[in-house]
Nucleic acid binder design. Structure first.
Length: 429
DNA sequence: TCTGGGGTCCTAGGACCC
DNA sequence: TCTGGGGTCCTAGGACCC
């Protein structure tokens, strides 16, 4: 197969995804500057074009921009992942009609292998994708097409930034690829982060094109094999495969910043209990059991207060997805790593050494406790079902505490659960 | 009042083994 | 002058992604 007979890879990316999701259900936001905040209403993670035009930077701490928001009529939303996840699934479902060879790369991006097509057909198909996703979901998308994933990412970027392209860019001819790569800053290449970009610039590699001019050995020495793959992909040689099936998870975690600083062991126990419950839910939903529990508690690194970063881990007696098992281990670790006198700002739990529940190694003790384990499973199923039906936290463990807590995250601008809760649907008049 | 959360992979270096 | 050397496993740290 010659290089120009490689299948086309399309990268479909939703524009300003979280903001677009909010707008679908509140069309009045169209044309206005809109931003969506991270968990805990911490920093800005999605901006409408109008918000970008006002110069609001990605990742900026929201609390420093309160006055700016008010002065410019910026609409502000807490992040609503139930809504975004649901919209994401709809977009993916539509795209899968265009090609079954699809990789859901992130909540707002898909790679598709669209096979061998003429240039004209590729353009037409991309426009068809935009139109269909737009009409069926209300989410605007851009499409970039090329022979490798890294080039498709760049094509997508060009599609998004060049209005004349009408949301679609196909990178095909060598001349066009060269001109485009010369215009792409090295730091904007997929796979080149800030550290690597600084290193490369210090050695006169300033654009994507500059990188392609270096030897493979040079790139490998500078950036390891990952960077080498990126460089080869820029040259049009596919090195990063389409992952149609998500590889099995290596870890499941839940961590949060607190609404206010926390000092007491009791408050940390409550927070950890609630995070373990959430991590357990995720684990069970994937049909996995965990063998190792890791815990982190930390102070606010931006503050002048004394700093502490506590971390510990423990193996479970037997691989488990039973929340009380995980909780026992987590609370033991917490008591070990807790130091009084610090203002804690964040805590998290990570579950590691995962394996599918039905492939768990059975010990003799498992055999003895088989009935007990079945009971535990039924209990968790009942609990997860109740929490799904009546809302997260409806049914929880007593050590999570009751009532409003300092550690609960702030979510002051949350939109309604338009797609996932009947109770929130507008009533017909 | 006050700066997200959830992931993955690679590498170097030490421990250990034969 | 010459101190064995190579494989494997584990871990911490770093880098990346959205």
């Amino acid at each position: 197969m010659s290089a120009d007979r490689l299948p086309y890879i399309a990268m479909v990316d939703c524009n300003n995804f979280y903001v677009s999701c909010e707008r679908v259900f509140q069309p009045v936001l169209e044309g206005l500057p809109v931003v969506v905040l991270s968990n805990n209403d911490g920093c800005i993670i999605s901006r409408s074009n109008e918000a970008k035009a006002l110069g609001i930077p990605m990742g900026a701490p929201a609390h420093k921009l309160q006055h700016f928001f008010a002065a410019h009529g910026v609409r502000v939303f807490s992040s609503n992942y139930a809504l975004y996840g649901d919209m994401s699934a709809r977009v993916q479902d539509i795209l899968s009609r265009f090609s079954p060879r699809l990789e859901a790369y992130s909540i707002d991006e898909c790679f598709l292998d669209i096979g061998e097509l003429s240039l004209e057909r590729a353009h037409a198909l991309a426009q068809e994708m935009r139109k269909t996703v737009g009409q069926w979901t209300g989410i605007p998308v851009c499409v970039g097409i090329a022979r490798t994933k890294t080039l498709a990412k760049i094509a997508n970027r060009v599609a998004k930034k060049t209005p004349e392209k009408n949301g679609v860019c196909v990178l095909e001819s060598p001349a066009e690829i060269t001109t485009t790569l010369q215009s792409i800053d090295i730091g904007d290449v997929w796979g080149i982060g800030r550290r690597s970009a600084d290193k490369l610039r210090a050695r006169s590699v300033r654009t994507a094109y500059d990188l392609t001019r270096r030897t493979q050995d040079w790139v490998r020495d500078m950036l390891t094999v990952c960077g080498l793959r990126t460089m080869l992909e820029l040259r049009g040689i596919p090195c990063i495969e389409l992952e149609q099936v998500a590889p099995p998870a290596q870890s499941v975690s839940c961590s949060r910043s607190f609404g206010q600083r926390v000092t007491s062991l009791e408050a940390l126990e409550e927070a950890i209990t609630s995070y373990v419950q959430r991590a357990g839910e995720k684990l069970r939903r994937k049909g996995l059991v965990a063998q190792v529990v890791q815990l982190v508690i930390q102070t606010n690194r931006f503050a002048d207060d004394p700093q502490y970063f506590g971390k510990g881990q423990a193996a479970l007696p037997t691989p488990s997805a039973f929340t009380p098992d995980i909780l026992t281990a987590a609370l033991q670790i917490l008591r070990k790593i807790y130091r009084p006198g610090f203002l804690y700002q964040k805590a998290g739990v990570v579950l590691l050494e995962l394996c599918p529940e039905n492939q768990r190694q059975c010990t003799f003790s498992d055999f003895l406790h088989n009935d007990e384990r079945k009971e535990q499973k039924r209990l968790m199923q009942a609990m997860d079902a109740a929490n799904q039906r009546f809302g997260r936290g409806s049914l929880q463990f007593a050590s999570a505490g009751l009532g409003a807590k300092d550690w609960h995250m702030r979510q002051q601008q949350l939109s309604k659960k338009f797609t996932t809760s009947w109770a929130e649907l507008p009533t017909a008049k």
